[in-house]
Design a protein around this nucleic acid. Structure first.
Lengths: 396, 396
DNA sequence: GCCATTAGTTTATATGATAAACTAACTAAA
DNA sequence: TTTAGTTAGTTTATCATATAAACTAATGGC
């Protein structure tokens, strides 16, 4: 049971000060006091501790506004390193970053899903080892490892419960890695949820208290951020909205049901339509939506297919909007790389269909971190777990 | 900006103690200290204050467990009164309750929607006046007035933005009432959201941190409780899920779109089907689902219609489950009075369709407060605003 | 009838925020 | 150049509150 005591107050205030410095640096102690309402003495004491802990440093003297010049403070992004790994359906992508998610080192490897779980995990171990070797000398060193997985995850145990596209079920990924590196926290989480975290900390989600990140690729998943915090639900299933029924008499989905959203607003749909229209030249191994969007500029049929996909995307986005009423919806994943074809159509569909028409429509925007969302989000999850817990987030 | 200071700690602990007493009364100071981990002295001090404030009282001596006998504490439900009003499509229902939502006085009035907004508001004023007159002498007297409205509400200003079934738009309900009773807080909120609050405080939602209340009647709305708190979204639209598209090529809804969930899992559907099947004898003014469910026991056609409705309800519930991943879904509103016909079919549909089949399926249960959910929830909203703010809710 | 046990209070102490007084370092205007 | 006013940041004394420990109170069981 969470009781209040004085150390809690201190933790809250210290976090508040640290977040403010991170968000608004360079900033002076005096400004922090003004903005937060905390006493100047309190701010000074907390800042001193943060400096001792290497999370903040003084970065020189600012300009005077008619009196003594302020000592400017900055978040020390080089206090440690973060490792983020994206486990894709047929690739691994790892990044090593500083605490600002600036990439120090990255590597991408392909694998064939048939290789099997153990082989893939050992590839991942190699990749992480390589990242650790590249980690620069910093006060904290590597602060942890985050891993994004295309499936449903039990975060407490770090188990992959179900990853259909990998054909994984019940894989204790965290404990396998934890055995290798007992000293580092290991976080395993769903790919879309981590991408949402990435956008929250370092991308298009920075300003929003409530937003939904949509990962639209082969399937559709979502990461839901409410009150500045990732919302997981009881079993970490919140946001598994790809299987929302949008057409009761539509196409069969491999989940067994009919008319799931992800049969219409995903790469699956585009491929189906390309096949129907006999445009098989596009359907090879290295199919890319970005390339298709490029070609669509002089190919109306391709453009039409993308627009259809966008319309279906919009229909589902409307459900997202009704369900969560977010400030923004951030579209990520391969479908976000279709230039404006998909997004414009989606926006139009939402505008036409929405119940209460006003300026309150959420922004529908594109991911800022692009194909790096998940890996950077994985790194961000470590940052959040170790340095900047969201517990005391100004709960509106 | 929310900073921590010592008084915040005190507020948190005092709230914690008060909530514990409310939930587990009768309870001794010693037990509170054990459960919360707070020091015995702290508990005693806080309890003394709560007693001074009339929110808690000692209710006699408990049984010894081998030592001094404890002084048992109880929540003082008679410290004040709450007024809750449900504004229906063609009726008003008001309750006056104590702080345990025990009804002291209630009244129901019908009106015709054609009467117009002003007439309805003045009926509401009369009703509230009657409630205030019946309020017993208590330390705090009437603590506030909560009002549930079938539409979208701007809570900060207490304005009804859009209530389609009443044909209201932009009605400043709270300020009209506030003028009458400046001394009482007036809360205006969407009907389903208040019903969710009611179930949270006094009904089927007591044990859940995350649950969704579904108000299924003429249309469908939802109240979403996450982390023990009502989730409203940015504009208070969160949970307006009746217009989720479930059949792209289905029936036209009066929202302008096609295939909205509330065309299938609502009274509208039942009436449509009754008409289609020529069972016009049911389609009079005083149509009641409860009566229909009773008749369905010996009328397969009626039973089938209810089951169809249940199946459609299930399809939408699946979306609710994927979106929010709640511990429970509580079904309220007229459809919940269909005996087991609707709910059984809905449960079956969810079980068959759900992606991850395990014991983690949320409970799908029926409202405990029944047709009183909204009015009691309106009263609960006052309780929450004035006595038991959810701010410091153990944020998991 | 005494001892172990539990309930609750009193007292002394520690922590951390705060207000106010202080020092430091500057700008601008006389 | 001097000086008054201003802003930045620190030091000091004080206050509120939680806590630990010692206390009183009241009981059951042997």
């Amino acid at each position: 049971m969470r009781t209040g005591n004085i150390t809690l107050v201190k933790k809250m205030n210290k976090q508040l000060v640290l977040k403010l410095i991170r968000d608004q640096h360079p900033i002076s102690r005096a400004d922090i006091a003004k903005i937060t309402g905390l006493n100047k003495a309190t701010v000074s004491a907390l800042v001193d501790e943060l400096i001792d802990e290497h999370l903040v440093h003084e970065s020189g003297i600012g300009v005077s506004t008619g009196g003594r010049r302020p000592l400017m403070l900055r978040f020390n992004a080089d206090a440690g390193s973060l490792i983020g790994v994206e486990l894709g359906v047929n690739y691994l992508y790892a990044v090593l970053t500083n605490l600002n998610a600036e990439i120090i080192w990255e590597q991408r490897r392909s694998f064939r899903p048939e290789e099997g779980q153990e082989a893939i995990v050992s590839e991942m171990v190699e990749l992480i080892e390589a990242a650790i070797r590249r980690a620069p000398a910093t006060p904290y060193g590597v602060m942890g490892i985050g891993i994004g997985v295309p499936g449903i995850v039990h975060t407490e145990s770090g188990t992959v419960i179900f990853a259909p596209n990998l054909r994984w079920g019940d894989v204790s990924l965290a404990s396998a890695l934890q055995k290798q590196w007992p000293q580092y926290p290991v976080i395993v989480e769903n790919e879309a949820k981590l991408a949402a975290l990435g956008e929250k900390w370092f991308g298009a989600g920075k300003e929003f208290a409530h937003f939904v990140y949509i990962s639209a690729g082969i399937g559709i998943g979502a990461g839901v951020v409410l009150h500045h915090q990732l919302y997981r639900g009881v079993n970490g299933l919140a946001g598994e909205i790809g299987h929302h029924t949008i057409d009761l008499n539509g196409v069969r989905c491999n989940c067994g049901n009919i008319g799931c959203w992800e049969m219409y607003a995903s790469q699956k749909y585009i491929e189906r339509r390309l096949a129907e229209e006999g445009r098989v030249e596009w359907l090879d191994d290295r199919f890319s939506i970005a390339a298709m969007a490029l070609a669509a500029e002089s190919d109306d049929q391709l453009a039409r297919i993308l627009e259809e996909t966008g319309r279906y995307l919009g229909i589902g986005l409307l459900q997202v909007i009704y369900a969560y009423n977010p400030e923004a919806v951030i579209i990520g994943g391969p479908l976000a790389s279709a230039g404006d074809y998909i997004l414009r159509a989606a926006r139009k569909e939402v505008e036409e269909r929405i119940l209460v028409k006003n300026e309150n429509e959420p922004y529908m925007i594109v991911s800022e971190l692009k194909e790096k969302s998940c890996a950077i989000g994985a790194a961000a999850s470590v940052l959040e777990a170790v340095v900047l817990p969201p517990e005391f987030e100004s709960s509106l």
